[in-house]
């Protein structure tokens, strides 16, 4: 049971880091927090579950959405050829 949750968490966190739309990443991050809260409830830790659900899915989502709204939403980089080019330019 715990292993299923952990695999789901790993898939969601990898998706958070590779997606180009930062807003999708924020939503996946709050899904990670909700899954963690369920996992804490299954592991007999209801206090930590309440905290994680309120903080992770509520407050930190608000802060991230504010930051993305105030700046820019898409991250157009993370392409390996551009990184190689910049490295070659430095030498």
């Amino acid at each position: 049971m715990v292993i299923v949750f952990l695999v789901l968490l790993i898939i969601l966190s990898a998706y958070t880091l590779v997606t180009r739309d930062l807003l999708y990443g924020v939503i996946a991050l709050s899904a990670i927090s909700l899954l963690s809260a369920l996992l804490f409830y299954l592991l007999h830790a209801p206090d930590v579950a309440i905290t994680e659900a309120a903080v992770g899915a509520g407050v930190s989502t608000v802060i991230f959405v504010w930051a993305i709204r105030a700046t820019e939403r898409f991250s157009p980089q993370d392409r390996p050829e551009k990184r190689n080019g910049s490295k070659g330019g430095k030498q």
């Binding site: 968490l9 966190s13 958070t16 880091l17 930062l22 990443g25 991050l29 990670i32 927090s33 963690s36 992770g56 930190s60 991230f64 930051a67 993305i68 991250s75 980089q77 993370d78 990184r83």
Partner: peptide, 17 residues
């Protein structure tokens, strides 16, 4: 490994979790 600063902060949150 990722050069976007917001994604670095995502990484911090994941490590904390």
């Amino acid at each position: 490994g990722i050069r976007n600063i917001i994604k670095k902060i995502f990484g911090l949150t994941i490590i904390n979790n």
